[in-house]
Design a protein around this nucleic acid. Structure first.
Length: 667
RNA sequence: UGGCCUAUGGUGUAACUGGCAACACGUUGGUUUUUGGUACCAAAGAGUCUAGGUUCGAGCCCUAGUAGGCCAACCA
């Protein structure tokens, strides 16, 4: 029982502190409050993971509450999709709830606020109200209806409710402070007239409550202890608390616990976007084939792509929770799905880019069913049979006529192991008129116990099953496509994000069902898409295997160039600073070397460049040493001592660090 | 003419009451391997945005800057 003392995130710290301060653990209660107006994406998963994760950690209930206060945008379809996604992720909610369940209670409280002079009916146009509201930098002014009598307000509000007025004629506002520095406190709207059919309350209501009024009080009614949301709601907290405190006075007996809102930074993923509006645009413009297109960062898209609930939950745990803007490397998500599938996905063989291999010494009519291990990571996975015959396909890139010894694959005269089968040797090639290799002729050997460096996957041509493979690349070519002020995110759409391949797979896959996941050996993880039919199997590539061979080639070109550029562009003084930074950590021999380097670089440094560094923080001893060394060179080359130099040297001589002192003594 | 939030390796997150800046991904090298996968081992990479201050000692406390983000829907 290694009780790992895992470090807590800031929300867990807050909860722990509340617990220490007397909050009973059985009072802990959380909620996930989506608006049913669209599909959930990976960003929502963070919010889901935080609240449901806390529920699991503290054994506390978590409600799924639909924030359905805007009948113009919300639909049952989205409710169903959201429930499906949350359940698929593996979370169990305590209660399925709706803000609309609280409309009556909310209304009653609103009436009480009116009676207490804390809310009033405004009857201006939205333009007029917007004008009075001011701007973030300018205070607002009071509107003409702000001091209506309680009786008039009550009457108007009652008539708003009963449908006497049209949309836009009247609204109910909280009476707070039009000059408040927080714009949300400038008499926020609580109710508007909306003569729309609501997916749950039908046509009963002609007025609907706004988010700020509804959300906090829904938390309160459900006695949520910690109401967690993303950072952009931070300014709302002040209003959340205002409403909460007033309503608490009316209902503290029924609802004793006022909830606490806390905010965390939302998730951003590199090479994709997270805005519902922009995701919708991709769907509408046909850039992708719907919300569940495997390239989409939606939960439904990831599910179709082959991501598992477990992998996504792992991912959310790894990204952590904090309050600063972040962009998570999509490589982390890929790591999580590989880690999961590595343990669970059966291995099979498939060739995506075939090259015909004829094994000349293998009898023409012979076929063998060889035993293959399904998953070496999972002993219970067992074995299956794969057919072998004289003619097989291998991957085109697994053969070269000539190659260096670093190429572990098949080359003329070379040997390679066929996974689960024999060792073959390439004897000759057949080419077409334009010189492309069309066949490789090999001989095989049944002695398979020898040590052979390379192992290839293959499929027997005679037994191969044709399948469609959809290979995906990132949807955008830019790391943060919607973070450019001057460019629209659509400019970064990757035109080659989908590649459709006609592949050959081993016959055992004929029995596979939609959704099943496999590792195509040496290639990656693939799952069977919903589009599969009895005639045609369609695979999605979930993610490739890590490929340290593919990495080797482009590297030398890509790396040397920028390096050269950097070095030629970098100023000597910058390099000196960097060397200085590490100076004190170096062993003596290397210090000598670094010192020589600094002295060399110092020849190209002007006094003007050096002087600012005299102010280097005392604790950055290494940098100061480098500065002393550089200064020594400048002095030797004719720089005259001045006040600044004297001051710097004498300060160095007084330092605790012996190295610095001894260097300073030289100059 | 504002208010609020944030700042730690390339990325993300830690560091309890102030005490050797840690973990994960990524990168590089190695061992094992019938997947150039996995597993395992190792390395490089941060004086914690800047400048002051308090302290024996500051990523953490104080002051002043700088940079980035959020706030003007009858949306949530």
């Amino acid at each position: 029982m290694s009780e790992e003392t895992k470090s807590l995130n800031f929300i867990e710290h807050i909860i722990e502190e509340d617990l220490v301060n007397g909050l009973s653990q059985d009072k802990l209660r959380f909620r996930f409050p989506p608006e049913p107006n669209g599909y959930l994406h990976i960003g929502h998963t963070k919010a889901i993971g935080i609240s449901f994760g806390l529920g699991l950690k503290y054994n506390a209930p978590v409600n799924l509450r639909f924030d359905d206060t805007n009948p113009a945008k919300e639909e049952q379809e989205y409710v169903d999709a959201i429930k499906k996604d949350v359940a698929w992720l593996g979370y169990n909610w305590e209660n399925e709830l709706y803000s609309s369940d609280y409309f009556q209670q909310l209304y009653d409280w609103a009436v009480q606020l009116i009676k207490d002079g804390k809310a009033y009916v405004d009857s201006q146009s939205s333009d007029a109200m917007a004008e009075q509201k001011g701007t973030p930098t300018q205070p607002g002014v009071d509107g003409p209806y702000r001091d209506r009598s309680v009786e008039e307000n009550l009457d108007l509000f009652e008539r708003m409710k009963s449908g006497e007025f049209e949309e836009g004629e009247h609204i109910l506002r909280a009476k707070i402070d039009m000059q408040h520095p927080n714009m949300l406190m400038r008499d926020p709207i609580m109710y508007r007239v909306l003569k729309k059919h609501h997916h749950r309350t039908g046509n009963y209501w002609c007025i609907y409550p706004m988010y700020d009024w509804t959300h906090g009080e829904s938390d309160y009614i459900e006695q949520i202890s910690h109401s967690l949301c993303s950072l952009e709601f931070k300014p709302h907290r002040e209003l959340y608390d205002w409403f909460k405190e007033h309503v608490y006075n009316y209902s503290k007996k029924t609802y004793p616990m006022p909830p606490k809102q806390r905010e965390f930074a939302r998730l951003n993923l590199s090479y994709t976007i997270m805005s519902k509006r922009k995701l919708l645009k991709l769907v509408e413009e046909g850039v992708v084939n719907g919300w569940d297109d495997p390239r989409m960062p939606t939960i439904s898209g990831l599910r179709r792509r082959g991501y598992t609930p477990n992998s996504i939950r792992q991912f959310i745990e790894k990204v952590g929770v904090a309050k600063r803007e972040n962009v998570i490397d999509v490589a982390l998500l890929e790591f999580c799905i590989r880690e999961d599938l590595n343990k669970t996905a059966p291995r099979v063989m498939a060739v995506l880019d075939p090259l015909k291999v004829i094994i000349t010494n293998y009898p023409e009519d012979k076929e063998e069913w060889l035993e293959a291990e399904n998953n070496q990571e999972d002993e219970s996975a067992g074995f299956r049979k794969v057919p072998f015959s004289r003619e097989i396909y291998i991957e085109k890139e697994d053969f070269k006529e000539e190659a260096s010894s670093k190429f572990f694959r098949l080359k003329l005269g070379g040997e390679v192991r066929l996974k689960n089968a024999y060792i073959i040797k390439a004897e000759s090639v057949v080419k077409d008129a334009s010189g492309n290799i069309t066949e490789v002729h090999c001989t095989y050997s049944e002695d398979t116990d020898r040590r052979i460096k390379g192992t290839l996957h293959w499929v027997s041509i005679k037994h191969a099953v044709k399948a469609e493979v959809r290979e995906y690349d990132r949807l955008f070519n830019d790391e943060a496509p919607d973070s450019h002020q001057d460019k629209d995110f659509m400019e970064f759409v990757n035109p080659n994000s989908l590649k459709i391949i006609e592949a050959f797979v081993e016959p055992s896959l004929l029995n596979a069902k939609v959704g099943e996941q496999f590792q195509f050996q040496r290639l990656g993880y693939f799952n069977i898409d919903d589009d599969s039919t009895s005639e045609k199997i369609v695979f999605n590539k979930t993610v490739g295997l890590r490929d340290s061979w593919a990495k080797q080639k482009p590297k030398p070109q890509q790396q040397t160039k920028p390096n050269n550029n950097q070095q030629s562009q970098r100023k000597a003084i910058d390099v000196i600073q960097q060397l200085g930074k590490k100076y004190t950590n170096l062993p003596e021999a290397k210090q000598e070397k670094a010192k020589a380097e600094i002295q060399e670089l110092a020849k190209n440094v002007s006094y003007e460049e050096l002087e600012p560094l005299f102010n280097t923080a005392v604790k950055k001893v290494g940098t100061r040493i480098a500065v002393v060394i550089t200064l020594g060179v400048l002095l030797k080359n004719g720089q005259e001592k001045n006040e600044e130099i004297e001051g710097f040297i004498s300060k160095a001589l007084e330092d605790k660090n012996e190295l610095l002192v001894s260097e300073a003594q030289f100059v």
